[in-house]
């Protein structure tokens, strides 16, 4: 683009560049989303069709009553997340969220390790009485019933 260009041509060139960059950004975003988005699983899906070990995913369900154990180091916990049909063991190191207890809902972010344990980086529990993690809102009816059964036992 030298100054010999007419104003009209310069405008076209500018539009062309802007559109090309935006399309490139869009394509890049689409490609990156396919490889980087982390999918949400409930335990039955995770057991039936496990994700690749090491791939970042999210696991949501209820913390099974009686499954919560603290390791001797005092900071690693092991527990089991279930949805009534299947169960997945989870390991987490850190301070648990304030509303994390046995029998309540949890969403764990992390990955499966080679032994079939879900290694969580982050735990999201209910924020408070009014804010249930979105994923737990719409479990299937069967899962919900099972969950209610478990939590009211």
């Amino acid at each position: 683009m030298n100054t010999g260009l007419k104003a009209k041509h310069q405008r076209l060139v500018l539009i062309g560049i802007a559109v090309a960059v935006l399309i490139a950004a869009g394509l890049l975003a689409a490609w990156a989303l396919r490889s980087q988005a982390s999918y949400f699983y409930v335990p039955s899906e995770m057991v039936a069709n496990p994700p690749e070990p090491g791939q970042a995913v999210r696991l949501g369900g209820m913390v099974q009553a009686g499954s919560l154990k603290t390791a001797p180091d005092g900071i690693t916990i092991n527990f089991v997340v279930g949805d009534g049909d299947a169960k997945v063991p989870v390991r987490y190191s850190g301070i648990v969220p304030d509303l994390f207890t046995e029998g309540s809902g949890v969403v764990a972010e992390g990955r499966m390790d080679a032994n079939g344990t879900f290694a969580a980086d982050t735990l999201l529990a209910k924020h408070d009485e009014n804010y249930v993690p979105r994923e737990l809102h719409d479990m299937t009816e069967a899962q919900k019933r099972a969950t209610v059964e478990e939590t009211t036992k």
Binding site: A29, Q36, S38, Y39, F40, A56
Partner: peptide, 18 residues
């Protein structure tokens, strides 16, 4: 009906490119 979440592994490198 597909639940995904998009986090730093997407946003950080892709936006850094620009």
């Amino acid at each position: 009906g597909i639940k995904v979440s998009v986090g730093p592994p997407y946003f950080n490198p892709v936006s850094a490119l620009f």
